[in-house]
Design a protein around this nucleic acid. Structure first.
Lengths: 179, 179
DNA sequence: CCTATCATGTAATCCGTTACATGATTAT
DNA sequence: ATAATCATGTAACGGATTACATGATAGG
C-alpha cells in the first residue's frame, strides 16, 4: 500500500508537516516563504493541493473545521513518517537545477551589443546583491527560532548570491564580444 | 501580432534555432546537452513539442522531409527573430531558481543522526566535484567552436560546483546537530 | 549479420501555474 | 466604517515529464 510515486513536492510537504504539525497550508506557506521558498518557488496553490493528494495516499490526516473558515489541519501518519524517513536517507546524485534567466540571456547574447550585455550583467549583479541583503534580514529574524540544520541550509544561499554577484560583476567589467 | 504568452522554454528554442538554423530537434538537443542543459534540464520531448507550437505561432518555419525519417527542419521567421531580440533586451529581476535535493534534505534533516547528515554531505560533495570535472571535459571539447558569450556562461557553472562542493565539505566536517 | 546506440517522434498523464474568488482581521 | 491585507480555498488550462515506440546507422 501506497508510497507510490511521490514527487519532490510531496516530500517537501511531508517535511513541512513534520516540522509544524498540526498545521494548515498557510502555516506551511509562511515557513516556505522565509526558507526553501527563497530558492525553490512553491506557489501557494501547490501547498493546498498537494496535502490533499497526500491524504488520499494515506500519508497525512486531515481535520477540517466544521465552523467558520473550515481550515484544514494536517498531521503525519505513520506511513507519511516512514516515507519521509526513507527519502531523507536515500542517496541522490541528482544534480542541482540552476535555473537562471540571466544565464540563458547571456548564452544567447551573441547578437547583443557590448553595452547591452553590460546592462544585463549590471542588472543581474544588483539583483543578487539585493537578494543577499534580503537573506541577511531573514536570517536575523529567524535565527533564534530555527534549528541548526535549517540555519545551515541558508548558508549555501548566501554563497550563491555572493558568487553570482561576483560573476556578473566580472561580466560587466569585461563583456564577451564576438560570435 | 502573435507574441502572446511565450514561455521561457519558447525563448530557449528560439535561441537554439537562431544559433543552429536550419536545424532539427535532435541538433538542438545535442547543443543543450553540452551547455545550458547542464543546469536547466530540458527533456527531449520538449525540444520536439515546443518548436511545433512556435510554428503555429508564426515564430518558426518547418520543413518536413517527405522521405525517410521525415525529419523536421526549423528556421526563424522575422517574427521569431524580433520576439527573441525583444526578450534578450528585457530587464529581469527574476531570482535564480536553485533546486537542489540535497538542500531540501538538509533542511529537513533534524531527525537524522550526525553520521547520516555527514553521509549526505559527503555524497553531495562528491557529486559536485564530479560535475566540476565533467564541465572541465566539456569545455575542452567545445572551447574552439563556442562563442565567447557561450563559453562565459559556463563559468558560473564552475563557480557553482566549486562553491557547493566547499559548502558540503564544511557540512561534512561539522554537521549541524540538535533541533 | 546482428546488436547496440543514435535519432526521431507521439501519447497520456499529471503536476504546476495562473487566475479567480471570497472570508476574516487589522489599521486608519 | 472602510480599505487594505491576511488567510483560505478552487478551477482550469497547458506545459512538462514519463513512457512508449520505431527508424536508421555503425560497430563487432
Amino acid at each position: 500500500m501506497a508510497d507510490q510515486s511521490l514527487t519532490t513536492t510531496s516530500y517537501v510537504i511531508l517535511g513541512l508537516v513534520r516540522t509544524l504539525q498540526p498545521c494548515t497550508s498557510y502555516e506551511m506557506k509562511s515557513l516556505v516563504k522565509i526558507s526553501i521558498g527563497m530558492f525553490w518557488s512553491f506557489p501557494h496553490s501547490q501547498l493546498y493541493a498537494e496535502p490533499m493528494r497526500l491524504v488520499e495516499k494515506g500519508m497525512l490526516t486531515e481535520n477540517q473545521e466544521t465552523t467558520g473558515r473550515k481550515r484544514r489541519l494536517f498531521r503525519m501518519t505513520p506511513e507519511g513518517d516512514s516515507a519521509l524517513d526513507k527519502w531523507l536517507r536515500q542517496p541522490t546524485s541528482a544534480p542541482t537545477e540552476l535555473r537562471d534567466i540571466g544565464q540563458l540571456r547571456l548564452f544567447f547574447s551573441d547578437g547583443l551589443t557590448t553595452d547591452e550585455v553590460r546592462d544585463l550583467a549590471l542588472a543581474r549583479e544588483k539583483m543578487h546583491r539585493d537578494r543577499y541583503d534580503e537573506l541577511v534580514a531573514t536570517r536575523e529574524k529567524v535565527a533564534s527560532a530555527a534549528t541548526p540544520a535549517k540555519l545551515r541550509t541558508m548558508e549555501i544561499g548566501f554563497k550563491w548570491e555572493e558568487t553570482a554577484a561576483e560573476f556578473w560583476a566580472s561580466v560587466a567589467a569585461d563583456p564577451p564580444v564576438g560570435g
